[in-house]
């Protein structure tokens, strides 16, 4: 279980690793929004080329990306099948019971699949090359304009940093509780649905109570060390944009412009 959260970040020194985490988040976001406008194979090909280039730049084995795609495989398949069966139109190729498989249906299914795969690849690039604490820092910096309308951004970022630190602890705790219950004769993998659902009750109660207790201990420890509020905290690592980030933003702008050139040119 631990490996899934932590194994997602792979340290490295590639171009993408060295980018400011804010740059990576902005690129990911703009990319995903732009990609929702893709509507023919030329625009899809261009967006795919951009992701493939980025994947190359991360210097990571493709297997890692495949691992990111695998868990979502069933959702993709489900969506593709729904698209195949429920897209109306002509010509109709053949019928499965009350459903009709049409040519626009097949095209739609392929586009939906490509869109899913590309968006997942893009977010995998972000998490593979950015440690979770940098993500929290970058979020704080990016969301700082919301401070003006009263959103406690510094506080939220602190909560995120603490939460990410607590996740492995809680996972260990969960494993310990499970082992403790098993040693008392508990079984988590036999019996009918009701028995199995019941089995998680003696897992969740100690997990929650233990977590709340730890939270209280941590709050005490923070206050003893002089913590007042999140706003007055200083930072160990200060984010700053470098030359490489300017290159990345230029590439992003180029990507967006060419995307819309392809799109309008094909319509005009």
């Amino acid at each position: 279980m631990n490996n899934i959260m932590i194994g997602r970040f792979v340290p490295g020194n590639s171009w993408v690793h060295r980018l400011d985490p804010r740059t990576k988040m902005i690129v990911t976001f703009v990319y995903i929004i732009v990609m929702l406008w893709a509507n023919n194979w030329q625009t899809y090909a261009w967006t795919a080329a951009f992701v493939v280039a980025l994947v190359k730049l991360t210097d990571q084995p493709f297997k890692l990306y495949w691992d990111g795609l695998k868990p979502i495989f069933w959702l993709i398949l489900f969506t593709v099948i729904l698209q195949l069966l429920f897209t109306p139109g002509t010509p109709i190729l053949f019928s499965v019971g009350p459903f009709q498989v049409t040519v626009p249906g097949i095209l739609n299914a392929i586009y939906v699949m490509v869109r899913f795969v590309l968006i997942i690849l893009m977010s995998t690039i972000l998490t593979l090359t950015t440690p979770p604490t940098s993500i929290a820092n970058a979020l704080e910096s990016l969301l700082s304009p919301f401070k003006k309308i009263g959103v406690p951004v510094a506080e939220l970022a602190l909560m995120l940093a603490i939460a990410l630190r607590f996740v492995p602890l809680l996972m260990d705790e969960m494993q310990k509780i499970m082992n403790a219950q098993k040693s008392r004769g508990m079984s988590f993998s036999t019996g009918g649905p009701i028995k199995r659902a019941k089995a998680i009750i003696p897992l969740l109660i100690p997990l929650f109570i233990g977590a709340l207790q730890r939270a209280l201990d941590l709050a005490n420890a923070m206050e003893v060390r002089g913590f007042k509020d999140a706003v007055q905290r200083t930072k160990y690592r200060i984010l700053s944009y470098q030359k490489i980030d300017k290159v990345a933003f230029t590439a992003l702008i180029g990507f967006v412009i060419i995307f819309f050139v392809i799109k309008t040119w094909l319509h005009g």
């Binding site: 909560m159 603490i162 630190r165 977590a211 939270a215 209280l216 709050a219």
Partner: peptide, 11 residues
């Protein structure tokens, strides 16, 4: 409140 919110997020 900050820490409890964080721990619940972690859960």
């Amino acid at each position: 409140r900050i820490v409890i919110t964080a721990v619940l997020t972690a859960l």
